[in-house]
Simulated scan of single mutants.
Amino acid sequence: MKEGMSGRKHGAVTPCAACKLLRRKCGQDCVFAPYFPANEPHKFANVHKVFGASNVNKMLQDLPMHQRGDAVSSMVYEANARVRDPVYGCVGTISSLQQHIHMLQTQLAQAQAEVVHLKARQTRCNSNLGLSPNSPTNSCSPSSKIMGSYAKPIFDMDMVVDHAIYSDSIWS
């Protein structure tokens, strides 16, 4: 027997995951069958738990055929997010990712400010000593400062944090 697109065998009707979970007969005109195959029962279980079979059925019936696949994908994604985080669902994931982006942007601003600071220091040292940047006797290099007898912070972190917080226009 050949299998069709929806995972059904011609001649024998294999109930889709939705009909199997709902313990009902799965007919040829089942709205769930193309989107919830029998071999993926967890997919419908979460959607059913969050939205309810009746609501999913109504939503799918109200949509044109070409939009149903996307709607089911969205429902499955939201249902899985709601199972993981019942209060916030997808919004919690989005918020967490936005916080992570903000943290990374702050770190990037700090690194960029440190590069500018080090380049300015190098230029200032080179102009004061009359040396080229690649000169082996250049005592203004960061490594010579670290190895030297005194330890001075190369970079003021408060300046960068203030710059990163008050210069949101950089990222817009």
Rank of each mutant, 00 (worst) to 15 (best):
R23V: 02
G27T: 15
R24L: 07
N39K: 03
D29I: 09
D29L: 15
C16Q: 05
Y35F: 15
K9C: 08
H10D: 11
R23E: 15
P15I: 02
L21E: 05
F44D: 03
A12V: 09
C19K: 01
A38T: 07
H10L: 11
C26H: 13
G11I: 05
L22E: 13
C16L: 09
H42Q: 15
C19V: 07
C19H: 06
R23Q: 14
C19Y: 01
Q28A: 14
K25I: 13
A12F: 00
A38F: 04
R23F: 04
P34G: 11
E40F: 08
N39C: 01
Q28S: 14
P15V: 06
E40H: 15
G11F: 00
P41L: 01
A18W: 00
R23P: 00
P15F: 01
R8M: 09
R23T: 00
N39G: 01
R8I: 02
P41C: 11
Y35S: 10
D29W: 10
R8H: 11
T14Y: 02
A18T: 06
Y35T: 11
P34H: 07
C30V: 14
Y35K: 07
E40A: 14
R24F: 06
Q28K: 15
V31H: 04
A17F: 04
A17E: 04
F44G: 13
G27A: 11
A18E: 12
R23A: 04
K25G: 08
P41E: 03
A38E: 01
V31R: 08
V31G: 09
P34T: 10
C16P: 12
P37H: 11
H42E: 15
P37F: 01
P15S: 12
K43Q: 15
A33V: 08
A33P: 08
A12R: 15
C16F: 00
R24K: 12
V13D: 09
A12C: 03
A17I: 05
C16I: 04
Q28M: 09
A17M: 11
K9H: 09
G11P: 09
L21P: 00
A12P: 03
L21H: 04
V31P: 13
K9L: 12
Y35V: 06
P37C: 05
H10P: 05
G11E: 10
Q28C: 08
F44M: 04
C19S: 09
L22M: 14
E40S: 05
H42T: 06
L22Y: 07
Q28V: 12
D29S: 15
R23L: 02
V13Q: 11
R24S: 04
F36V: 12
Q28L: 13
H42W: 03
R24E: 12
A12H: 09
F36N: 08
C19P: 01
A17K: 03
A33E: 01
K25T: 13
L21Q: 02
K9P: 05
P41V: 05
C26Q: 13
F44W: 06
G11V: 03
Y35I: 06
